[in-house]
Amino acid sequence: MQEDLLPMLASGFAETLYMVVLSTLAAVVLGLPLGVLVVLTAPGHLEDSPRLHRALGTIINIARSFPFIILIVLLLPLSRFLVGTTLGATAAVVPLSIAAAPFVGRLIENSLKEVEWGKVEAALAMGASTLQIVVKVLIPEALPSLVLGLTLAIITITGFTATAGAIGAGGLGSLAIRYGYMRYREDVMLATVVLLVIFVQAVQWGGDRLARRIDTKHHRSSKDRI
């Protein structure tokens, strides 16, 4: 172990965290409307529209089929346009968000689809609008499942940042490749991997705990769920 290890890890971790947080936020901003729209336009749902439903589904599938590294290259011009550069953590947030958004959209779709239709009908019978049903019924009722989905999204995005690190994004993934792999610094390699493992574990633990807390509040009589 050399004395440059700790500062290197600290700044790498900060960069990773920065990318993960910003990309997750952006992915939710893009993915939430997408997921909600896919649910609402499904056959028999509130805004039944088979064409739009199929079109959105296809867009999500296409976007999710791209290998992430290819997506980064394809989106280089967009990064340059939005951020002014293609290097660094901020530039990486662009492809990270766009890669994660359709994934987040699917996660949100799956959670919202699980809400019992009877609850939606009850709200309809009370004169609720579609927007009110989304905000006051679908999202609150699906909250534990949405939190678990978001946890999964954060972890997946963390994995993506490591890939982005391979082509100049910075962060722990970049450290592992530039120092650990290319310069045979085994201490860097080991430390970054351990740090990533701890980070992922912590996110999963926190997400599970939060989801369970919401769920047991709503289902006190059935603590064995989840």
Binding site: G118, K119, A122, M126, G127, A128, Q132, K136, H218
Partner: peptide
């Protein structure tokens, strides 16, 4: 027009109070 259902269809994320307040919020 009020309606009640065989399977109640209450919102699990809301307390009894907030369930009853729901139609008033909507109105």
């Amino acid at each position: 027009i009020g309606m009640i259902f065989q399977h109640f269809n209450l919102l699990d994320s809301r307390t009894v109070f907030d369930n009853v307040a729901f139609p008033l919020e909507l109105a």
